[in-house]
Computed example of a mutant assay.
Amino acid sequence: MTKRVLYLIACAAGPTEYVDESVRQAQARGWDTCLILTPSAARWWEPRLAELEELTGHRVRSQYKLPGDQDALPKADAMLVAPLSCTSLNKWGNGIADTVALGLVSEGVHLGVPVVAMPYFNQAQASQPAVARSIADLRAQGVLYLDGPDGYKSHPPKQGNPQKYPWHLALDGVGAIAGLTL
């Protein structure tokens, strides 16, 4: 039996510094985990990308492939966007797919791939009117958006704790939406 494939898509938000922990947790739940980073998040990991590739067994994607290039990753059975930054949330909610991270998930949700998103941004950013509209738009498309007590509750400005990001709740959401009890 082959493992189910999870695309873990991480944006440039504090917990991305610890995305390797999420990969390990997903793998412990039986997922073949492929990591996709926004270009800014990839810059954070640039000196250690080889470590992530060894951990996942796949190339870490952060750029669109060139026409004619073969896909570097297997087809996704589910996608998790975590941590989702405020910027990427609003781009995605408005249909802007200017990065491979947003392009994959924007297309995936409309191809029937189960998609979960869990944010990480502060309360001041969360108060922007575009945030509520983007969340509503993603939920209307079938994205399981985990915020508040079911996921990540926005923190006061300058008081976030990226090390305590609840990766397990995001992965629980993936299991639920993908029909798994892992």
Rank of each mutant, 00 (worst) to 15 (best):
A28E: 14
N94L: 04
L111T: 12
A72R: 02
F121W: 11
G160M: 05
V116C: 09
L37C: 00
P47R: 11
A72D: 02
A97S: 05
Q70H: 11
R4E: 13
A130K: 06
A41Q: 00
L182G: 09
V113T: 15
R139C: 03
R48W: 12
A132E: 15
A126L: 10
V60D: 00
Q128A: 14
F121Q: 10
R61M: 00
A10R: 06
A117Q: 09
V174F: 06
L171V: 14
G108W: 10
T87V: 06
I177W: 09
Y165P: 03
S88I: 12
R59K: 02
S22Q: 10
A28D: 15
E21N: 02
K91R: 15
E17Y: 13
P149R: 08
G173V: 10
V105N: 04
L111K: 13
M1E: 12
A178N: 01
S106C: 10
D20M: 10
P162A: 13
L138D: 07
I177A: 09
G179W: 09
V60M: 00
L84Q: 03
V113C: 13
R29H: 04
S40D: 04
A136F: 07
L144D: 10
I96N: 07
Y18F: 03
T16A: 02
D69R: 01
A140E: 06
L80A: 05
K75Q: 13
L169W: 11
A178L: 02
P157R: 14
K75A: 14
L102S: 08
Y145S: 03
L6N: 09
D147T: 15
L8D: 09
P47M: 09
S106I: 06
S85D: 08
D147H: 06
Q123N: 05
M118D: 07
G68D: 03
P157S: 15
K3E: 15
L55M: 15
Y64T: 04
G179N: 13
K65A: 05
W44N: 01
A117G: 06
T16I: 02
G93W: 04
M79V: 03
C86W: 14
K3S: 14
E53T: 06
T38F: 00
G68P: 02
Q141H: 10
V23H: 08
A10D: 08
L182D: 11
D32F: 05
C86R: 12
D172C: 05
N122D: 15
H58W: 05
C11Q: 08
A97P: 01
Q163P: 05
N161T: 12
H155W: 02
V109I: 15
Q141R: 13
D77N: 06
V109A: 05
V81Y: 03
R48H: 13
C34Q: 13
